[in-house]
Computed example of a mutant assay.
Amino acid sequence: MQAVVLREFGSAEVLRPGVVPDPAAEPGWVTVRLEAAALNWHDVLVRRGQYRSPLPHVLGADGAGVRTDTGEDVVIVPSLWWGDDESAPGARFEILGDHRPGTYAELVRVPADCLAPRPAGYSWAEAAALPLVGLTTYRALFTRARLRAGESLLVLGAGGGVATTAVALASGVGASVVVTSSSRVKIDQARALGASGGVLYAEAGWERAAKELSPGGCGFDVVLDPVGAWPEALAALRPGGRLVVLGASAAEHARVDVRKFYFGQYSLLGTTMGSPRDFAGLLRLLDEHSIAPPVIDRAFPLAEAAAAHRHLEQGGGFGKVVLLHG
């Protein structure tokens, strides 16, 4: 089958079209003929060698296509072997595309319980863009932070897939949402998704400016931090608020005033991509509320995966980058 093959770790240019064997049949696993795949920053880290994937390798966690055994339209849930404990993934957990061939190919083979129906009305690109960011964001906001209608949410770094999904999901269930961004254009785009406003994080004191946009200026119930800005995020919370952390793209270490933390009665919640049961909860949420599909920033043909990775790494986009297989 045709695929994009990683034969060495490095820059985007190491992603080249090639031919690899079709997936072999295996009991309990299903082959999907892919129509689209979506990029995630996780793919960039795999490409760079951070996850020590076997070489040659096919990247890609997200995808949507047609089951070859039943003809059903499906999306792929890239959470493999989460385990029975919903509080955290088990020792066998891995993300599709880390060590097993992923979705940058015509075909992919996954466990049968890692498939879900394509949501009604979703294009192939939108369906492919949903799983990883949808699952990650749903777990962060609803399983971990317990966000409810009527509460307030600050999303750090509007523009990426998690941030745009967070705005859509939170506003869709009746929470008020404010974002931070590097540009006024992205803030306006977030408003179109349901945010009430935003602040520029490059400006000094942005956390105070954001807090002023919270209900009564008292701080947010929840701050979603995919970047690692803990001190500023805590400063934007109300007393007793929850900081939920799912990334460290800007900083891998943080200094926190311990006394202020415990006197503020804050909760600090770490989270990662969720379980198949979280994904079932996401699909129920989409059925019960009017929530826009994932925002597509740009689509590339599968053979142009290197260009898609360059576009993702340059930043500046709003929404998801996808690969179309047709």
Rank of each mutant, 00 (worst) to 15 (best):
G63Q: 05
R16W: 01
G326Q: 14
V110P: 04
V162Q: 01
T180E: 12
E13N: 15
R144N: 10
A292M: 07
R298S: 13
I187N: 01
G65P: 07
V199E: 09
S183I: 12
G63I: 11
A202M: 12
A210R: 08
A12T: 15
L285T: 14
M273P: 00
T180F: 06
E94M: 03
P17L: 04
K211I: 11
E26N: 04
V256D: 13
G240D: 09
F220E: 09
R67G: 06
H311R: 15
E252Y: 00
H253C: 02
G65N: 02
V155K: 12
E35I: 00
A195T: 13
D62P: 01
R100W: 00
A91Y: 06
G315Y: 11
E72P: 00
W29E: 13
L237W: 02
N40A: 05
L302T: 03
P101G: 00
R259G: 11
Y122A: 11
A210T: 12
R146L: 10
E35M: 07
W230I: 15
L302G: 02
G63K: 05
E106S: 07
M1T: 05
V223E: 07
F9P: 02
G172P: 14
A204D: 14
R33F: 01
V19L: 01
S87E: 12
A105V: 02
F261I: 12
L169P: 06
L80C: 01
G90N: 02
G97Y: 06
V173D: 03
A127Y: 04
L285W: 03
V74S: 09
L45W: 12
A168F: 04
L15Y: 05
K260Y: 03
V256H: 10
S214C: 04
Q265L: 14
G216M: 08
V199I: 10
F9N: 08
A91K: 14
G60R: 11
S171H: 13
A229M: 14
Y51S: 04
A210K: 07
A254P: 07
P294N: 03
A38W: 02
G65R: 07
Q189M: 15
S53N: 11
G10M: 12
T136V: 13
V5R: 00
L115T: 10
Y122N: 05
A37W: 05
